[in-house]
Computed example of a mutant assay.
Amino acid sequence: MSAELTTIAFDADDTLWHNERFFKLTQARFADLLRDYTEPEALIERLIEAERRNLGHYGFGIKGFVLSMIETAIEVTDERVPASVIAQLIAAGQEMLQHPIELLPHAREAVEAVADTHRVLLITKGDLLDQERKLAQSGLGEMFDGVEIVSHKTRATYDGIFQRHCNGAAHAMMVGNSLRSDVRPAIEAGSWGVHVPHELTWALEHDEPPEDAPRFRQLPDLSGLAELVQALGQSVRPET
Rank of each mutant, 00 (worst) to 15 (best):
residue 143 M to E: 08
residue 102 E to G: 02
residue 127 D to L: 05
residue 112 E to Q: 14
residue 85 V to P: 01
residue 93 G to Y: 03
residue 222 L to P: 05
residue 98 Q to L: 12
residue 14 D to V: 04
residue 35 R to T: 11
residue 57 H to K: 15
residue 31 A to L: 03
residue 40 P to F: 06
residue 75 E to N: 06
residue 108 R to Y: 10
residue 8 I to K: 05
residue 212 D to K: 12
residue 128 L to I: 12
residue 197 P to G: 05
residue 1 M to N: 10
residue 31 A to V: 08
residue 34 L to M: 14
residue 213 A to L: 06
residue 109 E to R: 09
residue 11 D to L: 06
residue 124 T to E: 05
residue 207 D to V: 03
residue 38 T to D: 13
residue 189 A to N: 01
residue 2 S to C: 10
residue 111 V to L: 07
residue 102 E to Q: 13
residue 41 E to M: 10
residue 30 F to K: 04
residue 5 L to F: 08
residue 159 D to Q: 15
residue 229 V to L: 02
residue 76 V to W: 07
residue 18 H to F: 11
residue 20 E to F: 04
residue 176 G to Q: 01
residue 215 R to G: 10
residue 107 A to T: 10
residue 122 L to E: 09
residue 38 T to Y: 12
residue 220 P to I: 10
residue 75 E to W: 09
residue 189 A to R: 02
residue 107 A to Q: 09
residue 124 T to D: 04
residue 62 I to K: 03
residue 174 M to L: 01
residue 79 E to M: 13
residue 139 G to L: 03
residue 133 R to A: 07
residue 70 I to A: 10
residue 77 T to D: 05
residue 183 V to M: 04
residue 71 E to R: 11
residue 226 A to H: 12
residue 104 L to G: 06
residue 223 S to R: 13
residue 144 F to T: 01
residue 96 M to S: 04
residue 231 A to V: 03
residue 225 L to Y: 08
residue 217 R to N: 01
residue 21 R to T: 12
residue 203 A to T: 11
residue 227 E to I: 02
residue 151 S to G: 11
residue 27 Q to V: 15
residue 54 N to S: 10
residue 121 L to W: 09
residue 74 I to W: 13
residue 116 D to A: 13
residue 28 A to C: 02
residue 56 G to S: 09
residue 136 A to R: 15
residue 74 I to M: 13
residue 214 P to G: 07
residue 196 V to T: 05
residue 49 E to T: 11
residue 124 T to S: 15
residue 226 A to G: 00
residue 139 G to I: 06
residue 118 H to Y: 10
residue 197 P to A: 05
residue 8 I to Q: 03
residue 26 T to S: 12
residue 81 V to G: 04
residue 200 L to Q: 14
residue 150 V to A: 06
residue 200 L to E: 14
residue 114 V to P: 07
residue 218 Q to M: 13
residue 122 L to R: 07
residue 168 G to Y: 03
residue 58 Y to M: 01
residue 130 D to P: 00
residue 151 S to P: 00
residue 84 S to G: 04
residue 63 K to R: 15
residue 60 F to M: 03
residue 174 M to H: 00
residue 198 H to D: 15
residue 97 L to E: 13
residue 179 L to T: 05
residue 78 D to Y: 10
residue 2 S to F: 11
residue 48 I to A: 11
residue 169 A to F: 04
residue 75 E to I: 10
residue 97 L to C: 09
residue 6 T to V: 10
residue 98 Q to M: 11
residue 183 V to L: 03
residue 155 R to L: 12
residue 106 H to I: 01
residue 126 G to H: 08
